[in-house]
Each structure stands twice: as C-alpha cells, then as structure tokens.
Amino acid sequence: MRYRKTATAGKPTSKPMWKPAFAPLLKYPRLAFRSAGLCLSREMQYRLHFWGNTFAGVLWTGMYLVFIEVILSHTGSIAGWDRPAMYVLYGTYMILEAVAGMIIMPNMIKLTEYVRTGELDLLLTKPIDTQFYLSVRHWEFAGTGRALIGLTAVAYGLKHTLASGGGGSVLPSPALHPATLASPAILSWLSYLVSLVAAFLLLYALWLLSVLIIFWVIKAEGLGYLFVPIMQIARYPISAYPPLLQAAFRTVLPLAFVAAAPSSALLGRATPAGALVSLVVAGLFLLISRAGWLFALRHYSSASS
C-alpha cells in the first residue's frame, strides 16, 4: 500500500496544486444537495406518510384561511390590511412556513435528538463545521407543496390590489401601477425577494436559538417544536397586536421581519430600504445564534458525559 504511506505521515494531506482556493468551500453546498437528495429518496419509501402530510398541510392552510375570511367578512380588514393585502401576507407566510418546514424544522428537531442521545459526539469528529452540517442534514418535502398555494395567494392578492388601484387603507403603490411597470415594479419585486431571503435566515436563527436550550435541559423532546407556535404569530399583521407586543416583535423577537416586511415591500407599503433593514436584522440574529451555538457547544464539551 504505497498510497497509504503518504497519508500516514502525520501531516495534513497536501492538496493538488490545480485546485482553486475556494474549492473547500464548495463542499458545503454539495453536501446540502446530497443530503436533500438522500432525504427525498428516504421520504419516498413512506408514500402514505408523504401524501398524508401533504394533504394535512394543505388542510391546515385552508383552515387558517377560513379564520381570516370569517374575520374579513365581518370587518373588511385586519389592522389596516384589507382582503387583498391579507392574502399577500398570508401567502408570504405560507411560503416561508413551507420552506422552514422543509429545511429548518427537521434539522432543529434532529438537533435536539442528537444532543439527547449523544449522537452529536460522532458529528463533532467530522472535519466540517458542525453547525452547518446539522443545519442541512435533514430535509422533509411533504409540506413543501404549500409554497405553491402561498404563491397563488400572493398572486391573487396582488391582482386584486392592482384591480382596486391600491384599495382600502393600503397606500396606492406607484411601483405596482400598471402604467409604470418598468423598473420600479422590478424594484419592489426585488426587495420582496431580498426580504424573503432575510426572513428565512431570521427564522433559522430564531429557531436555532430556541432549540439550544436542549444543551441544558436534556429531557425536553418536544423542544424542536417550541418555535412553531411562535412563528405562527407572524401569520397576522404585526400591527394587530397590543402595543407592548408590537414593540417586542420589532426588536427582541423580530417577527415583524418575517412575513409582514416582505409583504409590505411587495405592496409598496415600505421603501426598498426596508429590505436592507431586513437583511441587517437577519444578519444580526445570525451572529447572535452563532454565538449562542458556540456557547452551547462549549457547555456540551465541558459537561456531557
């Protein structure tokens, strides 16, 4: 085994010269995609489960729509968001919920399991950033279909906003006016997308923070689900909540940046700068969650047995 001799030299294996400097970074997306593929093939083994979950996801979505519709049928708007605007908001929330259910939630649930069972030990010995690996390892596609319903709801709401020329208490948006469909419209779509991505990252950071408790309270199997009801707060307009909570949702628990911020951008209720604010908030919470993760890991490696 001549080949082995070089590897046993006790030094890091030298890489071939031609590899570009960013090559090691490429392994991260590759790993994420590979995991996604594996999870999909695993999920396909349990078809009944898959379709049951897909159907249930659609049903839940419809149910909260009934709630919103009943309110709107009596009042016409919720906290200044009329029916089309509510559809954009709810659709946006649904897209985020579907994506979070696909990649964030399964991984966070697994994380609590890894810590409880000590399987984290094995992951810690892998030459890869453990937080990253733990965050992209498990995918679940059963609920992802909801994103399509969400998209449809957004399109529906947007169409009716345009039809009524803004309508209700929503400020008519020049960006969305058919006459000026050129760059401003693109700008509001762009800020929608940017704040949507920011919202996703923010959800990830908050969910991770909520799950880190497992490092201290081991006997909490349900911890991975703790964030689910918290996230659901973002389904409704933030301005519908009492002032004290509103303040909290704009600062310490920034759920205002989840569904409301992208929706406002799309409806022309916020300036494109709002999207940048979303990004900053998401970045800040990503940093906080990273610090929290490192802190928890230090606790783990000094306390676990």
Binding site: F67, I71, T75, A79
Partner: peptide, 10 residues
C-alpha cells in the same frame, strides 16, 4: 391566545 389578540384588534 394569538387568535384572541387578533379579535381584540378587529
């Protein structure tokens, strides 16, 4: 609880 709050505002 959340739904109660929504009714409150409505």
């Amino acid at each position: 609880m959340v739904m109660a709050l929504i009714w409150l505002s409505v």
